[in-house]
């Protein structure tokens, strides 16, 4: 059970860290100064969440520190969903990715806060407060961009089409998920789908955007199957820890 709980916790931590890393790439590149600050803030929230979940994972692991878990695992040992590792590309693309993921993440934490596992429950409650704000942020921007200019509308519609394939895996269940769900520790992802659809459809309507058709469904992030983007992200993020294995920072 401990191994499965560890794996389950790492999935959550990895999602937060990798999205946090992506959001931190916006620092000094935001479309306005206010937005630059907002994007950094979201990144900071996500790093804080990652830190919380890694600390718990570190306890469960018994050997590795939170930093070991973040900086010394390879691509195939990262269990985040693929959607969070996608490159930012541009502001619209980031907003679309975040909106699709934040909507899920909000529902995920809303459910995980009822976990029988006290630590996961506490971490979920804390994260939920922040993710509510993240969702409000990405949702409002999606509406502005969708219902802004003709150019912005086309741009975010294209981003929606591009990213849609990465949304399906958020609702999948594998053996670990099933086991955690049975023990009332984890949640049933597939149960989030209806609520998620509702948030997405309502927002897209308001944003005057069209929900993409389902096509290819990317999967496997939580089992260590990733896009080509993750390797570069990790190479950069882990460089100092890897280059100076005996150093303390």
């Amino acid at each position: 059970m401990d191994n499965e709980l560890l794996n389950y916790t790492l999935r959550i931590a990895d999602n937060s860290l990798i999205l946090g890393q992506r959001m931190s790439e916006w620092c000094s590149k935001g479309p306005t100064l206010e937005e630059d600050i907002a994007l950094s803030n979201i990144s900071l929230d996500l790093f804080g969440q990652a830190n919380g979940f890694y600390s718990y994972a570190s306890q469960l692991d018994g050997n590795k520190s939170p930093d070991d878990l973040a900086f010394l695992r390879n691509e195939r040992e990262f269990f985040n969903q693929q959607i969070v590792e996608l490159e930012n590309i541009d502001f619209g693309n980031t907003i679309v990715r975040n909106f699709l993921y934040d909507s899920y993440n909000f529902l995920f934490y809303s459910s995980l806060k009822n976990s029988k596992d006290d630590t996961l429950s506490a971490l979920a409650s804390k994260s939920l407060k922040e993710v509510k704000y993240h969702l409000r942020h990405s949702k409002n921007w999606l509406i502005r961009l969708g219902d802004g200019t003709e150019f912005s509308k086309q741009k975010v519609q294209q981003s929606l089409e591009d990213i849609w394939q990465y949304t399906h895996d958020m609702f999948s269940m594998d053996e670990i998920d099933n086991k955690m769900y049975k023990l009332n520790i984890g949640i049933n992802n597939s149960h989030l789908k209806d609520e998620w659809d509702k948030i997405i459809d309502e927002t897209l309507l308001e944003a005057k955007l069209v929900r993409p058709e389902d096509g290819y469904k990317a999967k496997g992030g939580k089992n260590g199957m990733h896009t080509e983007h993750l390797g570069f992200l990790l190479a950069e993020m882990q460089f100092l820890q890897r280059a100076h294995p005996n150093a303390k920072w």
């Binding site: 935001g30 479309p31 306005t32 541009d90 502001f91 802004g148 200019t149 150019f151």
Partner: peptide
């Protein structure tokens, strides 16, 4: 960064 953000600021204004 300023140029890349132009379309975003325009969209926000238009909205």
């Amino acid at each position: 960064a300023h140029d890349d953000g132009q379309w975003v600021r325009e969209a926000a204004k238009s909205y």
